[in-house]
Amino acid sequence: MAETYHDRILRKLTEGLAPAALSVRDESHKHAGHGDRVAAAGKGAHAPVDGQGETHFHVEVVSARFDGLSRVNRQRLVNDLLADELRERVHALSMRCQSPSEVG
């Protein structure tokens, strides 16, 4: 069986960020039907959602790599690591990026 996008995201962030903590959650179900509805309105707000999930993810990651980086640059780092996934299928990636010193 091919590696799922969930597992790819997990693997790439683990390799790229050596995280102290990492969670990846598929939240596609929360958006089910919403792509179709918007597409029907002719506005193209969304890529089609085919009901197979793996289009919307939420990532929480704690990594020392974020030390000294702005919020924007932390997310850019994650987006860069997941560029292939974002291009191929994932069209929404929300995230919380913290450095170890910020986790209380």
């Binding site: 919020r71 924007v72 997310q75 929300s94 995230m95 919380r96």
Partner: peptide, 9 residues
């Protein structure tokens, strides 16, 4: 400034 996550944070 940022996107949704950053604005909310």
């Amino acid at each position: 400034v940022g996107g949704c996550d950053i604005v909310r944070e």
